[in-house]
Structures are given as structure tokens and as C-alpha cells.
Design a protein around this nucleic acid. Structure first.
Length: 423
RNA sequence: AGAGAGGUGUCCGAGUGGUUUAAGGAGCACGCUUGGAAAGCGUGUAUACGGCAACGUAUCGGGGGUUCGAAUCCCUUCCUCUCUGCCA
């Protein structure tokens, strides 16, 4: 959520930045400031009258104590008149404040200066490409054929149990999931992240704080009986650890990592590129999240990108790093780097991680602040990234490590798996 | 799930309608004192919004209500604890 005061002080800059994100209605900036002006006027008027009411009430208390009932009664008449004025003011204020919130949540975060101007995924900037394309054996298969051939994942039975997009992992296929999760968590904690295992359902307040509500309600599974939402990512419960918290500057940076299943309805997503594990309703992911001093978030973003890069290198995969253009970035992000791994069998790049700096966009919304060295309260910056999302990395490893009669394993995973090959 | 007891500041804790402007204590910060420290004494110590400021307004788990006036009374909701039930 953007701050009105920032918009007020940087009106033109904000409009310019919103245009980079291809926000269709930049004049909403003026609208929001006008609404805020109205709110200020109302509050001033309200406070003025409420002050009189409070003072008079205190006086009445004094009169009552002294037994001067006549004076008290006279004052009560005044108060009654003021209160009549307050009622419509109160209503207007509630209305204006609701309108302000409703309007301001429509703004996406402003993009960082480094964000490229483009609109479509093709205009993302490739900042790095590394690794070599695997030489696959003749007759190499895409992962959806491989997992069937070796009975690692059964989509049909998953569909019977629940519905399409809920894979059932079997035997070594299930163990491989567990091994990947464990390896990722170990890799993250070795770099200083603290491991969390959060609830997999959240309440509406948490979903609002990270921006899933009110807009993306349809993307989450909703347990209506208790009004809980199944998490679309561990980012939601873990970031909410620090909702409504005032930290000390010495608490920063906070580095968290968490494994969780992720539930996404993917409503409205259909068509190509959704075969096999490329897009599912339930998948597993290990997330890294940091809450940092505002001066440090640029630097920390680079560290997180390097961290994920090292993880991919350790898996021996060909990868590239993209800096997303304004039109392809997420709503809450100021700058995002996507990691893609090359699938030689599908002959395409698969997104396996997305690392973003949200600056104060989330922390303002969820009131996560810290007291700086001077004792001033400031909003912290939040960042997160996948490290890593399982099904696609699963698919990439299975495809890229396939041999003529089996599937090999990256070296780092072999001790975890207790074998030198998957099958 | 049922019955009961609770939720007050950084923490403990008093407060059942009106100088509460949330007592008191602890902690923390600064000052005095000291050779230095402890003790002692003094001062300060929540957040948000409005205002150039003085200051004002709101907040005692959340929301709503009664009243001239609510931490206090009423309704509702969430959470914690105890007992009972059920359960891996």
C-alpha cells in the first residue's frame, strides 16, 4: 500500500512511476489526495467539537460532585446540541476513510529506477545466463512422460482423490520431494535464515496484510465455516509474524525461511504451458523472507539473488536471471528478479524462483515498523523469494538428469537421497 | 464441543460510571551523587491521526451500544487459561 503523504509530496514522480507499471489511471493520485484533504477537514471539525464535549463532560462531573445539579443540567443541553453535530461528521469520516482505503489499495507499488520499461514478458531484461545445455540421450522425454514411465507422480489418482492439479507423489517420487525440501531448507539456514514452520491456513487479517485480500480473493481456497484461507505461499503466514509489531533497529535484518505447501485456485488460467508439473493447484515451496532497514533493501535484494543463484548452481542446472519489466512485475513489488531453468526436453525456460523487494509496500500495509537509532519510528522494508519452488525444479531435474535407462541426481542431493540416482 | 475464569503500557499489576491527566512497582534511558560501581535521589519512558506550534482527537484484545461522561455497564466477536468431552 502506498502512503498518501508520499504521493502528496511526490505527485509527478508517482505518476511517472505508475506509468512504468502501466497503471491505467494515474489521475487516481490526484483523487486520493483530494479524498485525504477531505478527511483532514473532517477530522479537524470533529476534533474541535469533540474537545468541547469532553471539556463540558468534565465540568458536569465537577458540578455533580458539588451537588450543583442546575448547572449540570444546563451544560447537558449544550452537549446534546454538539453531539447532534458530531453524528453526521462521524458518519462522513467513516465513509471517507473507507473510500480512501479502497482507493489507495488500488495502487501497485512504484517500480525501482532499475526496472525496464516494457509491458510483456518478452521485454524482461536477461541480466545473466549461465550453465550449459544438457546433452540428453536420444528419445529424451518431457517430465510428464518420465514421471509416468517411472511411476513417480500420478495425476489421475490425484484427480480422483481431489481434482485436477493435485498430484499424488509415489515412492521415490515422494521421497524426492522430501529430499529437495530438506536440502533447500538446509541451504537457507546455513546462510543465516531461521527456519519457520507456519500455519497453512490464515485468517482474513493476515491475507489482507500481504495483499491477497481484498483483490485476489478468488485465487485462494477459502474454508468458509471458519473463514480461513489456505495459503498460496508461505510468504503470507511468515511475513505476518511481524504484523503490528514495532521492532528495534538491532533486531534487523530478520531472515526467515519456511517450507509450506501452496494452494492456488489458478482461476482463469488455462491453455498452453500447463502440462504436468508446470502448473498445479497444490505444490510445495521453500521461501526466504527478510525484513530489513530501508537503507539496506537494495543490497539485501542482491544478496538474495546471489543466494538463489548459488542454489541453482549447486544443482548443476542451466539458468538465467531476468529483471522483470514494469508490465510483467507483481503488484506489490518494486523490483523483481525471476530465475528460469532451461528444460532441454521441453525446449523452454521454466520459472523456478522469483525474488522481490517490496520496500515499504507490505510493511506499511501491515504496520511493521522499527525504532531507528534516533528513536524515530520507521517502516521496515520486506523482501522475499522462492528458494525454491518444488514442482518445476523437480521437473527440470528429472528432465535434465535423465539417462537412457533412468534418472541421475545432482551430486549435492545424493547424500540426502541415499543413492546416486533417482531411479 | 460444553462449563467457568481471564485479556489494562516494554513487563508485572491496581482500577466496577466523574481530578485516572491509567495508581504503584519493575525494566530501560539520561542526570545528580561516587575514585569507579552498586545503592539512593531526580527526570523521562506507547502508538496513530490532525496542527507551523501550543496543543487537540482516538486507542485498556477487536467491533458495536447505553450515558453529559466508559478501562469500568450492555451486546457481539477473537484469543488465553482451568475443568469436562472428543481426538492423532
Amino acid at each position: 500500500m502506498l502512503q498518501v503523504n508520499f504521493l502528496r509530496q511526490n505527485r509527478d514522480l508517482a505518476k511517472q512511476k505508475l506509468a512504468v507499471k502501466h497503471f491505467p489511471n494515474v489521475d487516481l493520485v490526484d483523487e486520493v489526495i483530494a479524498i485525504d484533504d477531505e478527511r483532514k477537514q473532517l477530522q479537524a471539525a470533529f476534533d474541535e467539537t469533540q474537545t468541547k464535549v469532553n471539556a463540558a463532560s468534565k465540568e458536569i462531573g465537577g458540578f455533580m460532585a458539588k451537588g450543583e445539579k442546575d448547572h449540570a443540567e444546563a451544560l447537558k443541553t449544550n452537549v446534546a446540541a454538539w453531539k447532534k453535530l458530531l453524528e453526521p461528521l462521524k458518519e462522513q469520516m467513516a465513509e471517507v476513510e473507507a473510500n480512501l482505503l479502497k482507493t489507495i489499495v488500488q495502487f501497485p507499488n512504484l517500480p525501482h529506477d532499475m526496472v525496464p520499461l516494457g509491458k510483456t514478458p518478452e521485454e524482461n531484461e536477461v541480466v545473466k545466463e549461465a550453465g550449459t545445455t544438457q546433452q540428453l540421450p536420444a528419445g529424451a522425454l518431457p517430465h510428464w512422460d518420465l514421471i509416468k514411465k517411472y511411476n513417480l507422480v500420478d495425476f489421475e489418482t490425484g484427480a480422483k482423490i481431489t481434482g485436477s492439479g493435485f498430484p499424488l507423489y509415489i515412492g521415490k517420487g515422494a521421497k524426492f520431494q522430501r529430499v529437495l525440501t530438506q536440502y533447500f531448507l538446509d541451504f537457507n539456514t546455513a546462510a543465516g535464515y531461521t527456519e519457520y514452520l507456519p500455519p497453512f491456513m490464515v485468517n482474513a487479517a493476515s491475507a489482507f496484510a500481504t495483499g491477497q485480500l481484498p483483490d485476489k480473493e478468488g485465487q485462494m481456497y477459502h474454508a468458509t465455516e471458519d473463514d480461513f484461507y489456505l495459503i498460496p505461499t508461505a510468504e503470507v503466514p511468515v511475513t505476518n509474524v511481524f504484523r503490528d509489531v514495532v521492532l528495534k533497529d538491532t533486531d534487523l535484518p530478520i531472515q526467515m525461511t519456511a517450507y509450506s505447501p501452496c494452494f492456488r485456485r489458478e482461476a482463469g488460467s488455462f491453455g498452453k504451458d500447463v502440462r504436468g508439473l508446470n502448473r498445479v493447484h497444490q505444490f510445495e515451496k521453500v521461501e526466504i523472507i527478510q525484513i530489513v532497514h530501508p537503507d539496506k533493501s537494495d543490497e539485501v535484494l542482491n544478496e538474495m539473488v546471489a543466494h538463489v543463484e548459488n542454489l541453482l548452481i549447486s544443482l548443476g542446472l542451466q539458468y538465467r536471471i531476468l529483471r522483470l519489466c514494469g508490465g510483467d512485475m507483481g503488484f506489490a513489488s518494486a523490483i523483481t528478479y525471476d530465475f528460469e531453468v532451461y528444460s532441454a526436453a521441453q525446449e523452454r525456460w521454466l520459472e523456478v524462483s522469483s525474488v522481490s523487494n517490496f520496500q515499504a509496500y507490505q510493511t506499511y500495509r501491515m504496520k511493521c515498523r522499527f525504532k531507528d537509532a534516533e528513536g524515530k519510528i520507521q517502516f521496515a522494508h520486506s523482501l522475499n523469494g522462492s528458494s525454491l519452488a518444488l514442482p518445476r525444479i523437480y521437473a527440470a531435474i528429472v528432465e535434465n538428469y535423465q539417462t537412457e535407462n533412468g534418472i541421475a541426481l545432482p551430486k549435492v542431493l545424493q547424500p540426502y537421497f541415499g543413492a546416486s540416482e533417482l531411479v
